[in-house]
């Protein structure tokens, strides 16, 4: 009798372990977290809006020319996209505040804000950067959104990408704003030769199909 109880106890432990394993496996496949990261004003929210408009028919967040418009993590759950071959992937899209090493409330005043408002925005922006860094560990795949008219060799870019490589998180680099004359994708390719780089205009939708095709490689 004691032997039977011991056997039953062991079977229950094994069942619980197996169920947990299956549940985790299932959860992992069903809820991929796709994070949008990069410096401020690279176009992360514009790209998030483009993805949400294309596949859900709605926007994700507000965009602005003033830096640090996104100061909180924003999540859109269960976005499903299909490619030409009929394959489908679903993910939770996470739009993050731009990562910076400095935030000066006086820059917001120069953009036309009142002092009180500028100080609040600066405080929220610093918290946003901290949150974005803390969320790095939660991501399954990351899209780095860079402004292709800006210098790609900034230490923020190098630090974020190097950190993701150390964490072994798959990275796709998007060179945004290719519709602008100053855009230089080759400079981004030279700065990060070991990564796939897709040039797009999130604002006008240029080349987004190539971006979605690349997404299938990294998020499925």
């Amino acid at each position: 009798m004691a032997g039977f109880k011991k056997w039953e106890y062991m079977t229950n432990i094994f069942k619980a372990f197996f169920n947990k394993f299956l549940k985790n496996l299932f959860r992992k496949k069903k809820h991929i977290k796709l994070g949008l990261y990069g410096p401020p004003n690279g176009g992360k929210t514009t790209l998030a809006n483009r993805i949400c408009q294309d596949w859900l028919g709605e926007d994700m967040g507000s965009v602005s020319n003033i830096a640090h418009e996104t100061r909180e993590i924003q999540i859109k759950e269960q976005i499903s996209i299909k490619n030409d071959e009929g394959k489908e992937i679903s993910f939770n899209l996470v739009d993050t505040p731009g990562i910076a090493t400095k935030i000066d409330f006086e820059d917001f005043i120069k953009s036309g804000m009142k002092e009180k408002e500028a100080k609040i925005r600066a405080k929220e922006a610093t918290k946003g950067v901290i949150d974005a860094i803390k969320w790095l560990d939660e991501m399954d795949t990351i899209i780095i959104v860079l402004d292709s008219t800006q210098d790609p060799y900034s230490q923020v870019n190098i630090t974020i990408i190097g950190n993701l490589a150390a964490r072994e998180i798959p990275v796709l680099i998007v060179a945004n704003k290719v519709d602008l004359k100053k855009a230089d994708i080759k400079k981004i390719e030279a700065a990060f030769p070991q990564y796939e780089i897709v040039g797009i205009s999130a604002k006008y939708g240029d080349n987004v199909n190539e971006f979605y095709n690349a997404l299938f490689k990294y998020a499925s």
């Binding site: 990562i99 910076a100 090493t101 400095k102 935030i103 000066d104 409330f105 100080k119 600066a122 610093t126 918290k127 950067v129 901290i130 860094i133 803390k134 790095l136 230490q155 923020v156 190098i158 630090t159 974020i160 190097g162 950190n163 490589a165 150390a166």
Partner: peptide, 27 residues
């Protein structure tokens, strides 16, 4: 270390106030 560089940005953000506006960094 790579993780320390990210921590440096995070701790810099915590220290920002009206006098200290952050850092410029290059490796």
């Amino acid at each position: 270390k790579k993780e320390e560089e990210t921590d440096l940005i995070e701790i810099t953000m915590e220290k920002i106030d009206e006098k200290f506006k952050g850092i410029e960094l290059a490796v």
